[in-house]
Structures are given as structure tokens and as C-alpha cells.
Amino acid sequence: MNPADNIERSIARLHVTTRAETDKRILADSSAALQTGLKQRPLRAGRDAERMSWLIRIAAPAAVAAGILLACALLFNALFGKGTSPAEVRKAFAKVENVCIATCRAGATEPFEQVWASQTLKVKLFRSGSGNQAQFTLWDVPNKVKMMKFLTSEPLETEPITEQMLAELSKSVIPSAGLLTLFDTPADAQWSKVDDPQAAATVPGAEVCEVTFFLTGGSPSGTVIYRRWRLFTDRRTHLPKRAEWYTKSEEQDDYRLETFVIFSYPSASEIDDLVTSTFGTRRPEPPEYIPTPGMDR
């Protein structure tokens, strides 16, 4: 039969099957990607919990940084007396208009999560994953829209931001003191200035301090977990530049770096450029519209 006789039926009958080795390869790689992807996202109990936890989720990296920053600030008052005062840290950070916070795992060369927050533009841009698996989420307060781009080539999703979320976001585009409750260090936590040249070399020109404490609660086995937080602040501006989280399970062990956060302070135009290059525009189509990128024909 000549396919031209009934083209539609012929094309509809096309059927290409994968080879067994292809199936094996794709399933193995997909399974690995599934595990990696889920590890980066804490499981949520349900829809209600998901709604309630949105602020915590989107602000997680910032929360880590801001929490330790403010915990430092409070304890500096009582324990330091010299160097950067808590008032200075708080005052400096309160004035921040634009910030980028990159959260990295120890040994990693690139962050697994990044957040750019701009009080000037009233936007927050989140990136999780890396390479082809990067996912971008933009909270655009002026346009009252949340935009998601899972991959550079996959459909862009938009959805409106509810008034409640909008109100919360408007209050705290830049991580604020409200996040302090996420970090509850024991009252006897010991802050001290770090004079280790190696630590100081990590961020040249920064002042380094750390707090150590241990946790015993919450574990049925009564296991003790030792923690150490280390903070690097700019001597001149008093802004945080880096924070590090260490842990160990035995007292005699050395602390092991788990994660660290790098602060940078881009300009509003740099953040705007990033948003534009990622999403194309900050003036989205109506929320229900799911455009397909690359329609340049």
C-alpha cells in the first residue's frame, strides 16, 4: 500500500519501540535522578502542610543564614564585647536591598540551592538542582505571580500568588528577624572568636566566630549530636559573607562540615537581568496559560 493513499492512518500507525538496553539505561538513570531529586526536597505531610510550609520552603537557605546571623547577634552581646556587635550586624543586614544566598553541600563545587532576593524589585528567585536538572521558581510580587521553569527547555508554569502569600512576601522579601525562630540554640551555647588562620583564609578580610552545642532530644536512642556553626562577617560592612554548619556524633571526633552558605550582594539590575534571562520576561501571560518555550518560528 502506498502511504500516500491514506497518510493519516499510516502516520498514526507508526510505532517505534525502544531496545532492551535503552530501557535499562533510562530506568537506571531515571531512578538515580529520582532519588537525588527527592533528597533535595523534604517530604511534606499533605496539601495543608504544603501550603503552610511554603514560606519555610522558599526561604530555607535564607533562613539558615539569617537565623545564624541573628543568633550570633544576640549572643555576641553577652559573650563578645569586641568586634562586630549584634546591633551592627542587625542594622547592616536590615539595610540590605539585594542579596544572593547560595547553599552548598560540603565538597560540592556548586550550590544545590540559590536564592536571589530583591527588596528593590520585590522578587525572589530560587534555583535548585544543577545543570540540565536546574529548576527555577520566581516569586514576582509586583506582578502577583509565581513562575516555575523546571528545565531550560520544559514548559513554563505560572500561577497567581494568593493575597495571603502576597502579604507575607511583601513583608519579607529579604530574610528578616522572623526567621530567628527556626534556629533555637541552647542557652548555654558558647560563641567564640576564631583565630585560626586557616579559617580566616577562607574568606579574606572577614571576622570569624563560631558557636558549639549538642542536641540530645528528639532521638529515641538518646544519641547525642554535636554541632558547630561558624560565621564569617565583613569587618567593614558587618554583613555576613559565609556561614558553615558542622556536625559530629562522637565527642572525640573532629567536626565534619555538612553544608555552607555563601552570601553575595548583587545589584537590583543584576538580579533583574538574571530573571529576564531565565524567564524571558517578568510580564507573564495569564496564569492558566502554559506556554512552550522556544516558539520562535
Partner: peptide
């Protein structure tokens, strides 16, 4: 085409945790 299928499924698996289908 097989490479495309591979990339699509790997990407899908990586982001499914936060995927909200419309």
C-alpha cells in the same frame, strides 16, 4: 530520538517531587 527520550525521563524523575501538573 532515544537520547531525547532518555533526557526527558531523567529530567522528569529529577523534578517530579515538585511537579504540579496542570
Amino acid at each position: 530520538a532515544e537520547d531525547v527520550l532518555h533526557d526527558v525521563f531523567v529530567s522528569f524523575a529529577a523534578v517530579v517531587g515538585s511537579l504540579r501538573l496542570r
